[in-house]
Simulated assay, not measured.
Amino acid sequence: MVSRSRLKSVLTGLALYAMAAMVVGYFGVNAYTGKYGLNARQELDQEIVALTSELARLKAERAEGEKRVALLRSSGIDPDMLDERVRYQLDYANPRDLVHIIPQK
């Protein structure tokens, strides 16, 4: 009978260690692959880099647009800019301009 209780206590100890190892393994796997894990952090870093470059491009585009709008302000209209915008919007051309018509396919 002594050996039976000793076997039971050894198996109980092994079961507790196995359960503890499974709990630690579960949290370890989630720390690596979970929603807030190491892989997610790397993906977020890549997304930050992509969005930062897109932000820089959009800022440059906005600065260019603001520069073009400043040229059209009434305080100092650039004649070339005004001529370009009028021709574009009214679809007109100067008689001295060379117009090349491309046929539609």
Rank of each mutant, 00 (worst) to 15 (best):
N39M: 14
L55E: 01
A31F: 13
R57H: 07
A31M: 13
Y32F: 15
L71Q: 05
K67N: 04
Y36P: 06
Q42D: 09
V69C: 04
T52W: 00
G65P: 06
R41S: 13
D45R: 14
K35P: 02
V49A: 06
V69G: 07
E47H: 06
S53G: 03
L72R: 12
A63H: 12
L72F: 14
K35F: 03
L71K: 06
L38P: 00
I48E: 02
T52Q: 05
T33Q: 15
Y32S: 13
S53V: 09
E61F: 04
A70W: 03
E66I: 00
E66D: 10
E54S: 09
R41C: 00
A31C: 08
E43K: 15
L55M: 00
G37T: 04
R41I: 11
R68H: 06
Q42E: 13
A56W: 03
R73T: 12
E54T: 10
Y32M: 13
Q46D: 03
L38N: 01
G37F: 14
E43D: 14
E61C: 03
R62Q: 04
E66Q: 07
A50M: 10
A60G: 10
E66L: 10
A60M: 10
S53D: 06
A56Q: 13
V49K: 12
T52S: 08
I48C: 06
Y36H: 11
R73Y: 08
R68G: 01
E43V: 11
L38G: 07
